[in-house]
């Protein structure tokens, strides 16, 4: 082992034995066991400079070098500080992938809360080493991961989602439920939608409403969602005169008009006639929902008999108004 930069006796390695390892012997590009989504190392550089490396990283020995099992950022920080050697916990070359995966997960999951992408990476690691569902569920539970098979299934897909979607999940813009919905779409489509959600900064219900419009228009018109987003929606997003809330409202209205053209036209017509009636603040006329029922609802606001009398007179005029007739005749 000395040839690959470790300092130790010739006796067999103990599991997780501490050794002083040359950093040049640690492979940099192998992310097999990487769980953390964080790449910045400034905080660690500062801490290590002040206090030294408190928790040794975990490395797996191979024939001529080491790969990182846990401690990717610690290794990067030590390199950035110009360290030549570090003390690391070593897993020998004979240690199975399953044990390495468990160490990687335990070192992350049992020390800090994981975000959904990290949980998904943990599950993905477990999936690669467990062939039976029962073993997988037990291992997940014992390592502090969700043990519910449905949750495992949903979280498991996250690490395979495109980077923009994962970024949305890490930033808490995209929930597990929405991530699951997006996992059914093509990668470039889900990326485009994640980008839309980022631009609009909207919550789950509004995200769901837009996604439903987009999916159903796309299916009905045989037009890709990406194409739908590239046209009018893109223009709205780029409109500098609108703030985020206005952009959402404009996009929502546009998509609703595309999805329900007749209903939206009827709503607009109703609004036009309603405006022409000039009811004021003390009267509110509501159409039946989606114009399906036959009952209109008129609400009057008053505090005194005199106000009610005034409303009564106004109402008499409204009853004769041709715009009311047009409303009631649809």
């Amino acid at each position: 082992m000395g040839s690959k930069g470790g300092t130790r006796s010739k006796s067999p390695l103990q599991l997780g034995e501490l050794l002083s390892i040359s950093l040049s012997a640690v492979e940099t590009g192998n992310d097999t066991f990487r769980i953390t989504t964080k790449t910045e190392i400034d905080d660690l550089v500062y801490s290590i400079r002040q206090l030294g490396l408190l928790n040794p990283p975990i490395l797996r020995a191979r024939s001529s070098d080491y790969i990182i099992v846990s401690g990717f950022r610690r290794i990067a920080a030590c390199r950035s500080l110009g360290y030549i050697k570090v003390i690391a916990k070593i897993l020998g070359p004979d240690i199975s992938d399953k044990i390495c995966a468990q160490w990687a997960i335990a070192d992350n999951a049992l020390q800090r809360p994981l975000n959904l992408v990290e949980s998904s990476k943990c599950l993905s690691l477990l999936l690669s080493v467990y062939s039976d569902d029962k073993g997988l569920v037990e291992a997940a539970s014992s390592l502090g991961l969700p043990g519910n098979p449905d949750a495992l299934k949903k979280i498991g897909v996250i690490c395979r989602l495109p980077k923009p979607v994962q970024a949305g999940i890490i930033a808490d813009r995209i929930s597990l439920a929405m991530a699951w919905d997006l996992s059914a779409l093509e990668p470039d489509t889900s990326s485009a939608i994640a980008s839309l959600f980022e631009d609009l900064n909207i919550g789950l219900n509004k995200q769901r409403e837009l996604l439903l419009f987009l999916k159903e228009i796309s299916l009905r018109d045989n037009l890709s969602i990406k194409r739908l987003l590239e046209t009018k929606v893109r223009k709205i997003l780029e409109d500098e005169n609108l703030d985020r809330r206005q952009k959402f409202q404009t996009i929502r209205s546009y998509l609703k008009r595309q999805r329900f053209p007749s209903l939206v036209a009827a709503e607009k017509k109703f609004e036009r006639h309603l405006k022409a009636l000039n009811l004021g603040d003390s009267m509110k006329l509501a159409a039946p929902k989606d114009f399906e029922g036959a009952t209109y609802n008129l609400n009057l606001k008053f505090t005194k008999r005199s106000e009610l009398k005034q409303l009564h007179q106004k109402l008499a005029g409204i009853i004769q108004d041709p715009d009311l007739k047009k409303i009631l005749n649809n």
Binding site: F260, S262, L263, K289, D290, E292
Partner: peptide, 22 residues
């Protein structure tokens, strides 16, 4: 199937129906 992507609203009986003018 594309039949469910018509202009459906929720009817008074809770079922999805085409917008009445249609």
């Amino acid at each position: 199937s594309r039949i469910i992507y018509g202009e459906f609203i929720t009817g008074l009986d809770g079922k999805m129906r085409y917008f009445k003018p249609l």
